[in-house]
Amino acid sequence: MKRFLLLPLLTMLLALVSTTGSARALNAPLNDDTIVVRLPNQATMTLYVKDRAQLRELRNYKLDSLMVLLDTYIAQAEKASKNSTSEQVTMEFYPAKDQPGKKVPEQIRITMHNDQTTDRPAKKGDRVDVSVGRVFGVTVEESNTDGNDRVSVRVGSSAKSDSIRTAERKAKQEERANRAVHSNFDIDLGLNALTNKQRDINGNSLDLRPVASRYISLNWHYDIRLGRKGSPLYLRTGPELAFNNYMLDNNYQFVNQKGVNQPDVTVLQKPAEAGRNLEKSKLAVSSLNLPLMPMLSFRDKEGKDSFRIGAGGFVGYRLGSHTKLKYEEDGNTKKDKDRGSYNLTDFQYGVQGTIGIRSIDLFAKYNLNHTFKDNRGPQANTISFGLSILQ
């Protein structure tokens, strides 16, 4: 589009904002945020605003001086566009830095679009996007389908035009999709259960309260692509800080029992005080795990995560553990906390799997090692399952 059209048309826009009745809208029904103006030279100007208050924001600028400034910058952008083979050329200018003390925009961004369609010859600068400061953006577009020029002026609260915003979003999505290593933080929220349970040396069964035996894990994962660019196959790894809570049922608590000339053994035992009812009796275990899990991760047409599935293994090490009791005594609520190993297995390993869509996964982890050391505690294997929430 010829640059000289911009100055008079936007000057007419100033008249539209400052006066009433200088131009009449078309008779066609329109949305509240659209104003179509037919100018005397048969050109059509379309103004898009959120409301009338946004239209009045244009008065904050001296549009005659602004148009002269824009005309200078557009000339520079047009020159750069003619020397470029790309379909889009964007330049940024900072008038406030160049002219300190004057009421001029802090930033002006100009994007020249080069029409490369096959049904018409290439023409430099067929469309110009101008974004001024943080108040409004101006889009000037030429259409020659019926021999008449049409100009669209878009007024928005963002300094970036829709086309620039879309291009930047797509560029970020493509950059992430092509990245060889993705890092992310997610949280596992779930429950613990025990399998392959055996009674302790006193014949007591290790039973848990299902809903109260919670599993939480804070995960810093790295998805490493396996194969060439665009491959959906990844290897997931990265540290996981996990917290397993085992809430006992049937008024039992964990106690270390030591025999003569024998190592201590962890057993299940009811309170020694007659009539004491344990409101809470749990064993809390923290561990640091490292998964090694191949997975397939697919993306939709917009480059966003859509579906993934994976299965593999993990290893880990117990960091700490403690028991916690809560009960009533003499009308007061008391809490006892005791730190110790309770003959738990230090080194952990197992298998895990995940399946998910968008930002939510379902996960399951099964410990192949016994929860307690052999012959030193009630034998069982831990299984954890629940939801993974991606951040």
Rank of each mutant, 00 (worst) to 15 (best):
Y222E: 01
T44Y: 12
A272I: 07
A212N: 10
G356E: 03
Y342M: 08
N27R: 09
R150G: 11
P100T: 00
R228H: 12
A96S: 12
S86D: 09
A311N: 01
R59W: 04
T382F: 03
D374P: 08
D207F: 07
A80L: 14
Q42R: 14
Q42N: 13
A193H: 03
Y349D: 00
G137E: 09
S157D: 09
A15S: 15
L47H: 01
Q116D: 11
V260C: 07
H370T: 07
A122I: 12
A171P: 05
V37M: 12
S281R: 02
G331R: 03
N219V: 07
P291C: 05
E141R: 14
R59F: 05
E328M: 15
G313S: 05
Y222A: 11
E273P: 04
S341V: 09
I355Q: 00
H322N: 11
K50F: 10
Y48D: 13
K334P: 02
E87Q: 13
N289P: 08
L344R: 02
L5S: 07
N144Q: 11
A284S: 14
K373H: 00
R318P: 01
T117N: 14
L5W: 10
R3V: 15
L10K: 07
L387V: 10
R299W: 06
D336I: 01
F307W: 09
F385H: 05
H113E: 10
T166G: 12
T382E: 11
